[in-house]
Amino acid sequence: MFASGPPGTDPLPPLRLSAVVAQVFDETSPTALDPALRPFLADLVRPYGNDLRDDLLTAGVGHSFGEMAEVLLPAVVGPDEQVDLLVMAFAMHDLRLGRATAAYLSDRCPGKPMAFAVCDQGSGAAFTALRLAESYLGPGACRRALVFVVEQSALHYTQLEPAPVPDRHTGVALRLETDGSPVVGKQHTGVDARRVGGLFAAEVARLAAGQVDATVIASARLAEAAPGQADVVADAGQPYTGVWWELTRLPREGLVVLGDYEPSLGLLCLSTVDYTVARVAVPG
């Protein structure tokens, strides 16, 4: 059971990354052919006028966040390593529409942690999940947290507003605790497309000050809005996991700056992982 008093105002210890794993899932979840999917989707879209995609419903495409995260779980935490907090971040919804997946994963996770999900923030949700993990970690109830960033590619109805749809199913798991490489985050709201380039450049300069070997990872949308600033540009087909996916592919060296921009919210998010302080485990 998670138990806490009111949050204190003393500075929190820095969030530290101790492991990160990622996987692209090529298969389709059996949930894609669950007869409950169509009626739920029909109810979901009815007030808004989207048309169901019979072709996708018949084909049975898509993946479930719970099934993807369950595969990542043993790769990021051992069976005897108690986890106190589990946060899932997503933008486009799951194939299992009604499932409290974070709660389900808690039952599969050592320590049966406090668990919840963050969404309705586009690519910002992953950064907010890290920020919230930091707010819970500390000397009290939480000493180890997992953040899952997930996306799946099936949208079984016509889209009425522009937004990226992933072209593959991807899950990333970040393990955070009191030992590891410090993670620092920053979120800017009210950032329109004209400001994003300058603000991103200024933030990268500030965050990477004094670091000769900083690597900047940007999402495809951020790289388009702020061209020429990233060393690594994440694949546009991974709009919500891309920067985190790239983090797992880089050498664990120097300072890594991750940036993403959610134009629908005017939200610029940055995070740094400082590998110069401590190395991160590479499970498996």
Binding site: A91, A102, D120, Q121, A125, T189
Partner: peptide, 30 residues
């Protein structure tokens, strides 16, 4: 966990209508 079609975001609309579009807005669920 899911209540509106993607990427419809009533929370964002609420923020704009209330003059809170400067705020960091998100949903918690599960």
């Amino acid at each position: 966990p899911a209540a509106v079609p993607y990427p419809h975001n009533p929370l964002r609309e609420l923020c704009v209508k209330l003059g809170l579009d400067h705020a960091l807005s998100f949903t918690v669920t599960h």
